[in-house]
Design a protein around this nucleic acid. Sequence first.
DNA 1: GGAAAACATTTTAGGCTTAAAACAATTCGG
DNA 2: CCGAATTGTTTTAAGCCTAAAATGTTTTCC
Lengths: 172, 172
Amino acid sequence: MPAESDCTAMLDSETKAVETPEDHADELRLWLRLLTCTTLIEGEVRGRLRQRFDVTLPRFDLMAQLDKAPDGMTLSDVSKRMMVSNGNVTGLVERLVESGHLDRRTSETDRRVQVIRLTKLGRAEFRRMAAEHETWIADLFADLSPKDVRELMRLLAKTKASAQKSAARRRP
Amino acid sequence: MPAESDCTAMLDSETKAVETPEDHADELRLWLRLLTCTTLIEGEVRGRLRQRFDVTLPRFDLMAQLDKAPDGMTLSDVSKRMMVSNGNVTGLVERLVESGHLDRRTSETDRRVQVIRLTKLGRAEFRRMAAEHETWIADLFADLSPKDVRELMRLLAKTKASAQKSAARRRP
DNA sequence: GGAAAACATTTTAGGCTTAAAACAATTCGG
DNA sequence: CCGAATTGTTTTAAGCCTAAAATGTTTTCC
């Protein structure tokens, strides 16, 4: 059995380390499986939100962010938290203000900033939806033991950190 | 310590089982973490595909499906595999045929069916992109040990099965 | 054989999403 | 203090995405 066969790097004729064409099929499969899980659950949640409450998932997500911030958030905050573009938030907020779920006002101390909050209606509707939403999630993950859940949490935390590091390497 | 406090179900005054308001905060956190990981990685891959190859992620995904099917696929097949709506595929295919990456023809045995394939150009470009794409994924998951990867695969398989079961319960 | 069901795709209407450019307000450095 | 970055938001152009309805085709089953 040649010694090289288990190495991940080799020395070339100039004695400089070169990468062997590594096999990353496992990571690729892992990524696809991660994506499948998310797509599956997301689609299910989207459908249930529409059927039960006639609301879209992005609107629900935005309201969820605001529910955790009684004093409101700026559009930038929301955009960072939701990991979507600024322009996207502008449109979402527009429609939710229109429907009476959100209140939007310009900050008194910085006239660039828009602060948005849930209205009474918005908060009431969100709480109603969130309660049911939580049971859907519980059901979707029902076959995982508490230990599975903990272990997944741990591994996904590691995954998140790894991905963030990789992203930071690209644009420092 | 009351015996009920650790129970997940109680008997009410009519001796009928009722659910206690269970706490599913862990599952909820797990779902949000799963979503964060996917969004993070997806965004990174999307950006790199655009910068390096001026291609969108959905187009890349569609080509990836076709690369695995030398004899082509029907639009329905693609739609199921990619877990997106039929109408979505119609538009994607339109643009990829237009740009010369895909070939589309009506099945000879069933005139309802459209069979699509990668063109020579499409296959060549995809292979070039896929090679680089694989290194990005490897880098994004770089901090996971082989054991982590195996364990994540196992737990995500369990998650997928659980979610599919839950989805099937809703629309049998 | 022919109506009815099932199937594959497209169309429609509306909303979501992004990247990049434009605009506006604030902060920073000289 | 003032021009130059920086920051927060909106606009723009293009594409993605979905659910539902519409269209055309095949199968089923009386």
